[in-house]
């Protein structure tokens, strides 16, 4: 039995210790917002926050996540930064197919939570682990800046 502090709730899970957090979320807990893209920490589609840090959930076994705080796309809007990121994504119509966007939003939110006004280099560094096959990178960059400006304006508490 493992325990997760998932989006503010305590969840107990009975799976084998090597089961990646991604599959606990998707298959055991039926939370499908977090996506599978590569299974090898190469694409970022599965990004969640573990104790506030963005991680690739496909490559974190449940035994390593147990007892920690996990935030997923389903709850990211509950934080001021996550809400601002989603708002910017909506305003700029970032997604195309949308499949990579949960991971993009999780990475972007983590970036803005640690750096209020990131430079282009900061954005490159934080976001280049997230692949988008629809090629929305320029819109993602613009939306991150838009969200940063919005947050700097103090609209979000």
């Amino acid at each position: 039995m493992y325990t997760l502090h998932l989006n503010g709730h305590v969840r107990s899970i009975d799976v084998s210790p090597d089961t990646p957090l991604l599959w606990v979320l998707r298959d055991t807990l039926n939370m499908t917002g977090t996506k599978f893209g590569c299974g090898a920490a190469l694409c970022g589609a599965c990004t969640v926050h573990l104790d506030g840090v963005p991680v690739r959930s496909c490559s974190i076994p449940i035994s390593a996540a147990a007892g920690k705080r996990v935030t997923t796309i389903e709850a990211i809007g509950e934080s001021a930064v996550g809400r601002a990121v989603q708002k910017a994504w909506l305003a700029l119509d970032v997604p195309q197919c949308g499949y990579c966007q949960s991971g993009q939003i999780m990475s972007a939110t983590a970036l803005l939570q640690s750096k209020a006004s990131p430079s282009d280099e900061d954005i490159d560094a934080a976001m280049s682990g997230n692949i988008c096959r629809c090629g929305t990178y320029n819109q993602i960059r613009a939306a991150i800046k838009n969200a940063a400006a919005d947050l700097a304006g103090g609209q979000h508490r």
């Binding site: 039926n30 499908t32 977090t34 996506k35 994504w89 909506l90 997604p95 949960s102």
Partner: peptide, 21 residues
């Protein structure tokens, strides 16, 4: 016009084939 399908693609609620249960 803004895309009508953006809202479900920013909060994890959009259902793809892989999400079918």
């Amino acid at each position: 016009h803004e895309r009508l399908d953006t809202p479900v693609k920013i909060d994890g609620s959009g259902r793809f084939g892989i999400d079918v249960r």
